[in-house]
Amino acid sequence: MLTSFSRTTAAALLGLLAVAACSSTPQPKFQQELFETGASPYARNFNSSTTDACEAARRALLSQGYLTTMPRSDTVDGTKNFQPTGDTHVVVEFHVVCTPGEEASDTSIVYVNAVQNGFALKKSDTSASVGLSVLGSLSLPIRSNNDAMVKVSSETIPSGKFYDRFFGLVDHYLQTVVRTQPVTSSRIETSLLPMPVEAPAPVPAPAPSFAMPDAIDKAASAQPASGTAVAP
Score class of each variant (00 low, 15 high):
residue 218 K to W: 12
residue 183 V to D: 09
residue 165 R to P: 00
residue 33 E to Q: 10
residue 186 S to G: 08
residue 2 L to Y: 01
residue 46 F to G: 03
residue 70 M to F: 04
residue 194 P to W: 01
residue 55 E to R: 12
residue 4 S to Y: 07
residue 183 V to S: 08
residue 151 K to H: 09
residue 56 A to V: 00
residue 4 S to L: 08
residue 64 Q to S: 12
residue 4 S to P: 08
residue 20 A to F: 08
residue 205 A to S: 11
residue 35 F to G: 05
residue 206 P to L: 00
residue 139 S to M: 12
residue 65 G to N: 04
residue 183 V to I: 13
residue 36 E to R: 05
residue 25 T to K: 05
residue 105 S to Y: 11
residue 180 T to L: 15
residue 163 Y to G: 15
residue 84 P to H: 02
residue 107 T to N: 13
residue 180 T to V: 10
residue 223 Q to N: 06
residue 135 L to Q: 05
residue 48 S to V: 05
residue 65 G to T: 02
residue 158 P to E: 08
residue 163 Y to T: 08
residue 112 V to C: 12
residue 113 N to L: 09
residue 88 T to F: 09
residue 140 L to E: 07
residue 16 L to W: 01
residue 195 M to E: 15
residue 230 V to D: 01
residue 172 H to T: 07
residue 212 M to D: 02
residue 132 L to Y: 13
residue 89 H to G: 12
residue 155 E to S: 15
residue 41 P to G: 14
residue 153 S to C: 08
residue 34 L to Q: 12
residue 153 S to D: 15
residue 164 D to M: 05
residue 157 I to P: 05
residue 197 V to Q: 14
residue 184 T to Q: 15
residue 148 A to E: 15
residue 32 Q to R: 15
residue 34 L to C: 07
residue 220 A to T: 02
residue 162 F to D: 02
residue 121 L to G: 06
residue 151 K to A: 03
residue 5 F to G: 10
residue 94 F to M: 11
residue 70 M to Q: 15
residue 161 K to C: 07
residue 73 S to T: 04
residue 194 P to N: 07
residue 232 P to W: 10
residue 179 R to S: 03
residue 24 S to C: 12
residue 82 F to Y: 12
residue 103 E to F: 06
residue 119 F to G: 02
residue 109 I to V: 11
residue 153 S to A: 13
residue 230 V to C: 01
residue 173 Y to P: 08
residue 39 A to Y: 13
residue 206 P to N: 00
residue 224 P to V: 00
residue 39 A to M: 09
residue 20 A to K: 01
residue 156 T to G: 15
residue 115 V to P: 01
residue 121 L to Y: 06
residue 204 P to W: 01
residue 177 V to W: 00
residue 120 A to N: 07
residue 130 V to Q: 06
residue 171 D to L: 13
residue 109 I to P: 05
residue 30 F to S: 13
residue 32 Q to I: 05
residue 222 A to M: 02
residue 197 V to S: 10
residue 193 L to Y: 03
residue 179 R to F: 00
residue 220 A to M: 11
residue 105 S to K: 13
residue 87 D to E: 11
residue 18 A to D: 01
residue 156 T to C: 11
residue 42 Y to G: 02
residue 53 A to M: 01
residue 88 T to G: 04
residue 184 T to M: 15
residue 88 T to D: 12
residue 119 F to D: 04
residue 59 R to S: 11
residue 27 Q to Y: 06
residue 145 N to D: 06
residue 49 S to M: 02
residue 122 K to D: 08
residue 207 A to D: 11
residue 62 L to Q: 07
residue 166 F to G: 07
residue 124 S to M: 07
residue 136 G to W: 00
residue 44 R to G: 06
residue 56 A to T: 00
residue 38 G to F: 13
residue 61 L to A: 09
residue 110 V to G: 10
residue 158 P to K: 04
residue 145 N to R: 14
residue 210 F to C: 11
residue 130 V to E: 07
residue 197 V to C: 11
residue 97 V to D: 06
residue 161 K to Q: 14
residue 225 A to R: 00
residue 73 S to K: 15
residue 16 L to H: 00
residue 82 F to R: 01
residue 183 V to E: 07
residue 76 V to H: 03
residue 4 S to E: 13
residue 83 Q to S: 04
residue 132 L to M: 05
residue 181 Q to Y: 06
residue 17 L to N: 10
residue 152 V to N: 07
residue 199 A to L: 11
residue 27 Q to D: 03
residue 111 Y to E: 15
residue 193 L to V: 07
residue 166 F to H: 05
residue 53 A to S: 01
residue 61 L to R: 04
residue 230 V to R: 02
residue 21 A to W: 12
residue 177 V to Q: 10
residue 126 T to P: 00
